[in-house]
């Protein structure tokens, strides 16, 4: 496992709690690494990390772990860099070239290099899964590849960013200004110190790119998405929309046959299934056979994201693991 932040720690604590038949043989944070073929002592590592220490030996780098570690599957949960996708993209390429399966929660490499990484995985006969990159706990990728087999997806609409949905919800509920709602979000740990990616719609656009490229096998880039954030929304605008029995939400929308791919604040009826409250995420797929389907769930959080990562790991373990 590369990366031991919120997601990595969530996975570790789940594996301590539940016997899922998985062993972590190596672990690395940005500054150190630890390799134990018979299994890393997760409790010890968690305790060190929470005490503000590195997880392992500073003489061992994350790259050493990827290159020399003894493992079947790489769990890549290091921080996202959306400009370069590094160093995560290099870790993933390296693991694939060693014939290792990869499960990632990292939006950078998946948004920037999905096509290339998929091709590499295919040619090395390994699996690449990334359920945790979009909509947190909602198993949307599993739904797309299994439950909706035989369907053609016509359009996708979603509330893909919990922070901006929380802010808009609080503005509507309490008549708060944008700045007040953002301050509250920060206080509650819902917004980061620099909330730019969330409130400007960039995070939602990255997820829309990942979803679109997965569903339609396109080569869409972040620059192709029309993006407007929520930072100009006023409580007055929300009040005016309420006179029409509507509210305002940041909606990601992709309709390929009409050339639409955008993340914009929209006027939406209050009883619309995509109007979810707080940090929840929601996604509606319109397909030719199943019609419209909406999924709602937690979009972030340590254990919720771990749920998506673990689902991917077990999927691979049960179907592709050597000797399975």
């Amino acid at each position: 496992m590369i990366g031991f932040g919120t997601v990595g720690q969530g996975i570790a604590s789940v594996l301590m709690r539940k016997d899922l038949g998985l062993t972590i043989t190596a672990i690395a944070d940005s500054r150190s690494g630890l390799m134990r073929d018979d299994g890393v002592d997760l409790a010890g590592v968690l305790e060190r990390k929470r005490g503000g220490f590195v997880v392992g030996d500073v003489g061992i780098s994350p790259m050493d772990v990827v290159k020399r570690g003894e493992y079947d599957l790489l769990v890549e949960v290091s921080p996202t860099n959306i400009q370069t996708a590094e160093p995560a993209a290099t870790f993933i390429r390296e693991a694939i070239s060693r014939g290792k399966h990869v499960v990632s929660s990292n939006k950078g490499p998946i948004a920037l290099h999905l096509k290339e990484l998929r091709r590499a995985a295919l040619s090395h006969g390994v699996q690449l899964r990334y359920e945790a990159t979009v909509c947190g706990a909602i198993p949307i990728m599993h739904v797309l590849e299994e439950g909706l087999r035989g369907n053609s997806v016509k359009s996708l609409h979603g509330v893909l960013n919990g922070t901006s949905n929380f802010i808009l919800t609080r503005m509507a509920e309490e008549g708060l200004t944008y700045d007040q709602a953002l301050a509250e979000a920060r206080e509650m740990g819902v917004a980061e110190a620099d909330p730019t990616y969330d409130v400007k719609g960039i995070d939602a656009a990255i997820k829309l790119v990942i979803l679109s490229n997965t569903i339609w096998e396109t080569d869409l880039r972040l620059e192709d998405v029309v993006v407007t954030g929520i930072d100009q929304i006023t409580p007055d605008a929300i009040r005016l929309s309420e006179d029409e029995d509507a509210t305002i939400r940041l909606i990601a929308e992709a309709i390929p046959e009409r050339g639409i791919c955008r993340v914009t604040p929209r006027l939406i009826p209050r009883n619309h299934p995509l109007v979810v409250n707080g940090t929840l995420n929601a996604i509606t797929l319109t397909t030719d056979l199943a019609g419209a389907l909406t999924f709602v769930g937690k979009g972030a959080g340590s254990i919720e994201t771990a749920s998506a990562v673990i689902g991917d790991i077990l999927h691979i373990k049960e179907r592709y693991a050597r000797g399975a």
């Binding site: 305002i248 914009t264 929209r266 619309h272």
Partner: peptide, 8 residues
Amino acid sequence: ILVIEPLG
């Protein structure tokens, strides 16, 4: 001016 359009 920011224009917010209705969905769908």
